[in-house]
């Protein structure tokens, strides 16, 4: 334990020292995300999937689409649920068993970003009102960890949904029955993009890598939609932000998000 924390402390002071000089440990500028690679249809048996690498963080998201009962107060809407899980080999510190607060927060923030943007038009996913609706389940698994899983999972889920095809069901004898040979695109209204920023000392950096993530005082994840509006936000970490920093982070999330959205649009463009 002791030796690890000494290395950590040295690394932290080196990261902060570099930031004071306007540099980052991996040579990026402050508002530059890592290289994003998206591969869709990684899991052909799913209804849609994506394998995403953000720097050395790697996430696979698979989408399953199946009939489900609607939520009691939402009989005229389909269901969307997004989860996230860290696989045991993604980092030596990951343990199996029920998810801890960090993983629960990760899953909920990724879900909220997509949900609040109304990316999927859930009103089109109704088989019979109040009885049966279509459920879209986007499950993320983290394969390799190098910081900022919030964005890696969000991009993976978004790309997987964009590439998804939904089967069609009809009510027959009160049971949703598959209509053979019909597949449609999932109804998409917007492309949400989350941008996570870390605060180290008084410096705010976009897309912190693993070492930066361990050195952060606080972080903020902001999701924007295709219109450049902000639709979800989460602050985390045991530090704080000033009002001016929050407003600046809002602007950064729009500009950086717009570039990443272009990459995700290619996924959408590729669907037939």
């Amino acid at each position: 334990m002791t030796s690890i924390s000494v290395i950590d402390d040295l690394k932290k002071s080196q990261i902060l020292e570099l930031l004071e000089q306007g540099k980052r440990i991996d040579g990026r500028t402050f508002d530059e995300p890592r290289k994003l690679a998206i591969e869709t249809n990684a899991i052909p048996k799913s209804n849609g999937s994506a394998r995403v690498r953000l720097g050395d963080s790697e996430v696979i998201c698979g989408v399953k689409i199946q009939p489900d009962r609607p939520f009691p107060d939402m009989g005229d809407k389909g269901i969307f649920i997004c989860t996230a899980e860290l696989l045991p080999f993604s980092h030596p510190s990951v343990e199996t068993g029920p998810p801890g607060p960090d993983v629960i927060e990760l899953a909920r923030v990724v879900d909220r970003g997509i949900r609040e943007s109304h990316m999927i038009d859930l009103s089109q996913l109704v088989i019979e009102k109040n009885k049966s609706v279509v459920g879209v389940f986007a499950d993320n698994v983290v394969v390799d960890y190098d910081g900022n899983l919030f964005d890696a999972c969000a991009y993976a889920a978004t790309a997987a949904i964009l590439s998804s095809k939904t089967p069609k069901w009809e009510m027959k004898n009160e049971i949703p029955t598959l209509v053979d040979g019909v597949e449609e695109d999932v109804p998409i209204t917007t492309i949400p993009v989350s941008v996570t920023m870390g605060k180290i000392g008084n410096h705010v950096i976009v897309d912190p890598n693993g070492d930066e993530w361990d050195s952060m005082d606080a972080r903020i994840t902001i999701t924007t939609d295709s219109n450049g509006n902000i639709c979800a936000l989460q602050k985390g970490g045991n530090g704080g932000f000033t009002y001016d920093e929050v407003v600046q982070c809002g602007k950064t999330s729009v500009t950086v998000g717009a570039k990443i959205r272009e990459k995700l649009k290619q996924v959408m463009g590729a669907r037939k």
Binding site: E116, I230, A232, K235, G240, T242, Y243, G250, V254
Partner: peptide, 30 residues
């Protein structure tokens, strides 16, 4: 928010806001 320190320590959002509304919303909350 910590008023004496001028630090925002909890911040979440769900729902759609334009950047101008976002700014006003933070101001109103403070």
């Amino acid at each position: 928010y910590m008023p004496s320190m001028d630090k925002i320590t909890l911040l979440q959002l769900d729902g759609i806001l334009t950047p101008e509304e976002f700014k006003k919303c933070v101001e109103t909350g403070i």
